[in-house]
Amino acid sequence: MSGWPKHALAAAGHPDPYPYYRELARDGWRRDEALGLWLAASRRAVDAVMESPACRVRPAREPVPAGIAGAPLGEAFGRWLRMSEGDAHARLRTAVGEGLASLPCDEAELTARRLARAFLATGAVDGLRLDALVDFLPVATLASLLGWPEAALAEAAAGIARVCGALAVDADAVARERGAEACRILLADLAALPAEGWLKRWRAEFAGLDAAVLCANLLGILFQSRDAGAGLLSAGIAWRCLGEWNHADPGEWRARLMLDPVLHHTRRFVAEDIELAGQRLKAGDQVLVLLAAAAHDPAAPEQAMDFGRGRHACPGEALALATARGALQALEQPRPNWRALGGGVTFDGPPNIRMRRFGAGERA
């Protein structure tokens, strides 16, 4: 295993984690005592965990992380679709899925391209500029579609970044306080947006549900769009730095994501004793679901796994791909030196996201 990732939580930031993932996929299951986790790595094991109602997105005894429980951010977190189970989850999933489906992808792509062009027009296209675009655009595109004023998009993106920081595993009291304040402001902004365009359709889908549930879930979608969308866009840019490719084709994106995924893992908490894909699990166990390993399982059909599987599959795939396509179209216009931009790519992001950074050398 020389030269392989130190462990599964470090794999997304490794220069080439895929031989390691293929080895794990052949095992199917592995126990990592140092991490205190089961690793589900084969396609069979991953599918079994993602489809099992016994495997929850949160521990039964801690539906909201202890560090934010009782705060407005904790209240919003507890209402998020992807953190919900049971009948309430099913109803929310239907509303959110139909809300996302109602958005024409062409509109999202055009919005992303327009915002990216305006962003890039204010400075040279270098590595630092690419990193800033990656951090800004996924949230800004969605916020713009919801009706956010253009002048406030940068602050909305920065606010979501603070929410992400507050929910990180290693968040300290300062990060949680900054995230709580950002959450308060963002929820107030969402509640004040005029019911027009896409937001009007969202409110129709959530008719009969508490308005606070709608705002919380829109905040949750903005939150989800940030790191996953940034990882997706940074991957598309990195692939373009290696040579031309058809980034207008969603099928080409999926083919590349199968080989070089962006979302590498997610976590599940076992609520009851159960056997899944030949492995006995006990209530209280934690499972690291290695989606990237499953995509590389030599015994399974080839399929990208970035947008999840089963009951908690991400309904925002079309929106995320449209945003990334629009950004790359905008980036082609100034005809940057792609080879130079890709010459110093590093990986630095959340443990589950393969996030490229282009300006590390420029920062030094």
Rank of each mutant, 00 (worst) to 15 (best):
V174I: 10
R117A: 12
E51N: 10
R43F: 03
R91M: 10
G316M: 01
A322I: 02
A158S: 12
L319R: 02
K6Q: 12
A152D: 15
D47M: 03
L186W: 08
N352T: 01
H7N: 14
V213D: 14
V163R: 06
E181K: 09
S102P: 09
D285P: 00
G70Y: 09
L209K: 04
F347Y: 15
P72K: 08
A40F: 10
I237C: 13
D135P: 09
R240A: 11
G99K: 11
H264V: 09
G342D: 06
E33H: 13
G236C: 10
A173L: 15
A330L: 06
W4K: 01
G243Y: 14
R129F: 09
L321V: 13
G179D: 11
R91Y: 02
V46M: 12
E275D: 11
V96K: 06
G13Q: 15
G208D: 08
W80R: 00
A207H: 04
M83E: 03
E150M: 06
P63G: 09
Q286L: 00
A54N: 04
I274S: 00
R240F: 08
L81T: 06
V213K: 00
D260V: 13
L130R: 13
E362T: 04
V169T: 10
G70H: 07
R162V: 06
I185F: 07
P250H: 08
T122A: 14
A161R: 15
V163S: 05
L142E: 03
P15T: 15
A121K: 09
G243T: 09
E275C: 10
L115I: 12
G229D: 05
F358R: 07
R325F: 00
A188D: 13
A66Y: 03
A90F: 07
A132L: 10
E23R: 15
V262R: 05
A216Q: 00
H312A: 00
R325P: 02
R268S: 02
R82N: 06
A294I: 04
A277W: 04
P59T: 01
E196K: 13
G316L: 00
L259D: 09
A295Y: 10
R117C: 05
G123A: 14
H312V: 01
A182C: 07
A188M: 06
A101W: 08
L130H: 14
V345P: 04
A182G: 12
R22I: 06
C183M: 08
G236E: 08
V49M: 10
A25Q: 13
Q224T: 01
G342Y: 04
T346H: 02
L288H: 00
A283G: 15
L9F: 12
A304W: 00
E62L: 07
I353G: 05
A304S: 14
W4I: 02
G74V: 03
G67S: 15
R22V: 05
L115T: 13
P351E: 00
A207C: 06
V287C: 08
A271N: 01
P301V: 14
S2V: 12
L219I: 04
W80D: 01
R256S: 11
A216R: 02
G308T: 00
L263C: 04
G284A: 09
T122Q: 15
L328I: 01
A248T: 12
